[in-house]
Simulated assay, not measured.
Amino acid sequence: MNLTLAISLFVVLVILFSSFVTVKQGTIAVVTVFGKYRRILQPGLNFKIPLIEQIYSRISIQNRSVELEFQAVTVDQANVYFKAMLLYSVLDDNEQSIKNVAFKFVDERNLMQALIRTVEGSIRAFVATKKQADVLILRRDIVEHVKEQIDQILESWGYHLQDLQLNDITFDDVIMKSMSQVVASNNLKAAAENEGQALLITKTKSAEAEGNAIKIAAEAERQAAQLRGQGIALFREEVAKGMTLAAKEMEQANMDTSVILFTMWTEAIKHFSENSKGNVIFLDGSGDAMQRTMKEMMSLHAMEQLKDK
């Protein structure tokens, strides 16, 4: 009797404890009754009917990642090698999404195989329409194309593509070497163009500076010439005034004005001999020439006086 009671008590305890199920955070439990879907259990402590309800599977709703390595061929028959990282997760904790995850595939291995082949096929189809030279700059376009193509398919499986990272895109060695040569030649061309532009700017600035210097020098020379001309004109005017005044005084004193011219000629000859580098001086020292010069100077002085009036 005591043995029967003990066994009954043990069975009751087992049934009682099996009625409570703990579901970890980030996990959803799928419950079936005699093999048929019944309901889902959220994280925490849950109650199920003992011996009737069974835990069919526990599904993680956390993000999962998988690495991919595959090859594609461009429209110009170049081999492209991809290394990618796929980040995906269960669409949400909605009952229908969890049912799709639990019952669409036989096991996790079949799901991963279908997911990887779907992503690879989408990328291969996109790359097959592009040229080898365009693939590297279309990295973002490839990712957007894949998401657009497989999002609807993954949702029907109960999953969502979080991110696709193309970590490495390479080509055959021959193509990689030719691409390096193209980049190197473009860099040399850009450097030569920059150097040419810098030299052109330097030459232009130098020419502008030289032109400005010439303009300044020409303006200074023009002003100097003008001042020299004004000085010579004033000098001649003062000489004419002095000679005219001296001639008038000599005429009033009944003296010959030729003495003035003679004195000027002698002073000029003295100046020439002291400052010139030549050995011969040709001068017209005749009386007629002196008289003519004297008359011209007096006429010039008379014109200046008329201007002053």
Score class of each variant (00 low, 15 high):
Asn94Val: 03
Gln230Gly: 05
Met290Thr: 15
Ala224Arg: 11
Tyr37Thr: 08
Gly242Ala: 14
Val106Trp: 00
Val101His: 00
Asn254His: 11
Glu195Leu: 12
Leu86Gly: 03
Glu144Asn: 11
Asn167Ala: 11
Leu3His: 15
Leu306Val: 12
Leu306Trp: 09
Ala225Arg: 14
Gln223Arg: 08
Met294Asp: 09
Met255Val: 11
Gln54Ala: 06
Phe103Ser: 04
Lys130Thr: 02
Leu87Ser: 12
Gly285Asp: 11
Gln71Leu: 05
Ala247Ile: 12
Val239Ile: 14
Met294Asn: 09
Lys104Ile: 11
Gln71Thr: 09
Gln54Leu: 07
Ala289Cys: 00
Gly44Ala: 07
Glu208Val: 03
Asp134Leu: 07
Met297Cys: 06
Val106Phe: 04
Ala302Thr: 10
Ala218Pro: 03
Gln252Pro: 02
Thr204Leu: 11
Ala84Gly: 02
Asp288Cys: 05
Gln113Cys: 09
Gln62Pro: 06
Ala84Asp: 01
Lys99Trp: 03
Arg228Ser: 12
Glu296Trp: 04
Ser97Met: 07
Ile269His: 07
Val135Glu: 00
Ala209Thr: 07
Leu166Asn: 07
Gly44Glu: 04
Gln291Ala: 14
Thr204Tyr: 04
Val23Arg: 02
Ser8Trp: 09
Arg58Thr: 14
Met179Thr: 06
Met255Tyr: 08
Ser273Trp: 05
Leu245Ala: 13
Val143Tyr: 07
Lys131Pro: 01
Ile260Ala: 13
Arg222Pro: 02
Tyr159His: 03
Ser18Pro: 08
Lys131Glu: 00
Met297Ile: 12
Arg139Cys: 11
Arg117Met: 03
Thr266Met: 13
Asp256His: 12
Ala240Arg: 11
Asn279Thr: 13
Gln197Lys: 12
Val146Trp: 15
Thr22Leu: 00
Val31Ile: 15
Ile232Ala: 04
Ala184Asp: 13
Ser258Tyr: 06
Ile52Cys: 09
Leu164Met: 10
Pro50Glu: 00
Asp76His: 01
Leu5Ala: 07
Ile169Asn: 07
His160Trp: 03
Ser57Phe: 08
Phe10Met: 09
Val33Ser: 06
Thr118Arg: 00
Thr118Asp: 00
Thr293Gln: 08
Asp76Thr: 00
Ala184Ser: 09
Ser122Tyr: 01
Ala233Val: 07
Ser178Met: 10
Asn46Met: 06
Ile232His: 06
Ala84Ser: 04
Asn187Met: 10
Leu245Gly: 06
Lys99Gly: 04
Ala207Arg: 12
Asn275Thr: 15
Asn2Tyr: 06
Gln71Lys: 08
Val143Ile: 14
Asn275Val: 10
Val23Asn: 05
Val182Ala: 11
